[in-house]
Nucleic acid binder design. Structure first.
Length: 272
DNA sequence: AATGCATGCGCAG
DNA sequence: TGCGCCTGCATTA
């Protein structure tokens, strides 16, 4: 689940269901129990998201800092009709009010932090295409002088915040860029196009709560092919499609290990 | 039952 | 560069 769009969507959903009124806070699994007890019964005042970091604001300038990592999951439920299910022993954090509950499992981070600590997290993150006013030029200054591959740079949260393995693969495909090209060999125009595209794709991701990257002219209907939905729930060009034919040119999609993550690309459409 | 794998990241060396 | 950490699911035996 978790790339930046998921986190921004969660910030909105937590705020909508729990914002502005007292909330029950607990940690059935125990690792957040002390902090949960401090927060229990207080008001969730605001939420924020930057890249893959989620922040839940409580009185006294305190925040719950959540990072889902690779496995973290969040489940919302309605309790107006039926009571919330008993929390299992893996629920790190549960918020509840009379209408709703939300369970957090398996996060890399769930910690109570100060406003100053939150600021230092923002400081070490790059601009986020989903944050209004974030400046792509900040990322460009670093990309333009880097010998690192653009595939690695896009995953570096200090450079750009919120891009994960799916958006990385898909946006490079959409712009016909070889993932192994060095950052310094991109043009500023290419970078701006990537940034603008990420902003649009990720906004759509927030709205639909899934990742779709296939342009209208390449949908199965437009190309006269049978319908498809990739098994992670969206429609994509290359992500997890190793050895399958490219939807556009038919070349077999390639995969390689890049810093312990699977990279996918079409050697036909993405040339050096 | 055991294994492998996943949309992530921080740390040691 | 490799390792550990968080969990659930699908696949293999």
């Amino acid at each position: 689940m978790p790339e930046g769009h998921t986190i921004h969507r969660l910030a909105a959903d937590y705020r909508e269901r729990f914002g502005g009124r007292p909330v029950r806070v607990s940690s059935p699994q125990g690792k957040f129990a002390d902090s949960a007890a401090l927060l229990d019964g207080t008001v969730l005042s605001r939420t924020d998201a930057h890249g893959k970091h989620l922040f839940l604001g409580f009185p006294g300038e305190e925040w719950v800092h959540i990072h889902l990592g690779l496995f973290g999951k969040v489940t919302f439920g309605d309790t107006a009709a039926a009571p919330a299910p008993p929390p299992t022993d893996t629920v790190r954090l549960r918020l509840a009010n009379p209408e709703s509950y939300v369970d957090l499992r398996g996060p890399t981070t769930c910690a109570l932090i100060t406003d100053a600590e939150k600021h230092s997290i923002h400081d070490r993150l790059g601009p986020d295409p989903l944050r209004d006013g974030d400046d792509p030029a900040r990322a460009w200054r670093r990309i333009a002088k880097s010998r690192t591959t653009i595939a690695a740079l896009l995953m570096d949260q200090k450079i750009v915040a919120g891009v994960g393995n799916v958006y990385r693969a898909e946006v490079l495909f959409r712009h016909g860029i070889d993932p192994y090209r060095a950052g310094k060999d991109l043009t500023e125009r290419e970078w701006r196009a990537i940034w603008d595209d990420l902003a649009a794709l990720m906004r759509e991701g927030v709205r639909l709560n899934r990742i779709d990257t296939v342009r209208p002219e390449h949908t199965p209907e437009a190309m006269g092919r049978p319908p498809r939905v990739d098994d992670h729930g969206g429609e994509v060009y290359v992500y997890r499609r190793a050895r399958q034919p490219c939807h556009v040119c038919g070349t077999a999609i390639r995969t390689a290990d890049l810093a312990h993550r699977n990279l996918f690309w079409c050697p036909g459409c993405q040339r050096a």
